[in-house]
């Protein structure tokens, strides 16, 4: 995979301190929100933690050598407060969802749920899959499932189908332990 290209602001120290002035903060939030999103898409990351870690590292990521909230080269790291603000912005535009009410981990959506739902609806129509049933496990294997969805985390996929259910595109059943979740397209 090509190395992730950090935007220039990532090396500008004050971007790691939450800006007190509204106008400046708006720019900062916008920049970080876009970075978090691009970073997660690039590395196929579906969950970002807003918590600070005891050892000073901030995020749990597949590759510790490419961090998101810490720039060791300039000795700056985001504090929890700032991360919550930036992730809140991601949630507000539909690309994220807090997993806990007190905002520890944020699930990241590469598309908004509404976009996913309409993708699923179109896919079901085009392939005439009304009435067919899949488990999430099967979905990861089946050739007719678009690669884009196969790359998604199982939990994200589940979340998408739950959203589909409220839109009447599919119904979801089972799923006490994740593997057995079934989806029936309507």
């Amino acid at each position: 995979m090509a190395a992730f290209l950090y935007p220039p602001f990532y090396a500008y120290p004050p971007y790691f301190t939450l800006q007190p002035v509204e106008e400046t903060r708006a720019k900062q939030v916008q920049a970080w929100k876009a970075l978090i999103f691009d970073f997660c898409v690039h590395h196929n990351i579906h969950t970002v933690s807003a918590d600070d870690h005891a050892d000073g590292t901030v995020d749990v990521l597949p590759d510790p050598s490419s961090p998101l909230f810490v720039n060791a080269a300039i000795h700056r790291a985001l504090k929890r407060e700032a991360k919550v603000v930036f992730l809140d912005a991601l949630v507000a535009e539909g690309h994220g969802e807090w997993l806990e009410a007190d905002k520890h981990r944020c699930r990241v959506f590469f598309k908004t749920l509404a976009e996913y739902v309409s993708d699923v609806r179109r896919w079901v129509d085009e392939n005439a899959l009304h009435g067919s049933v899949y488990t999430l496990y099967e979905m990861a294997e089946a050739t007719e499932i678009p690669d884009e969805w196969k790359r998604l985390d199982r939990d994200v996929l589940h979340r998408i189908f739950v959203a589909c259910q409220s839109s009447g595109v599919s119904s979801v059943f089972g799923g006490e332990n994740g593997e057995d979740v079934g989806v029936k397209f309507l």
Binding site: Y12, P13, P14, Y15, F16, T17, Q19, P20, V21, E23, T24, Q28, H75, R76, A77
Partner: peptide, 21 residues
């Protein structure tokens, strides 16, 4: 400068002290 959006503040350059960029 801060009010006019011409400066950014950094709280991590020196402990307990703000630097303005």
């Amino acid at each position: 400068f801060m009010r006019d959006g011409m400066a950014w503040v950094d709280g991590q350059r020196e402990p307990g002290k703000y630097w303005y960029y």
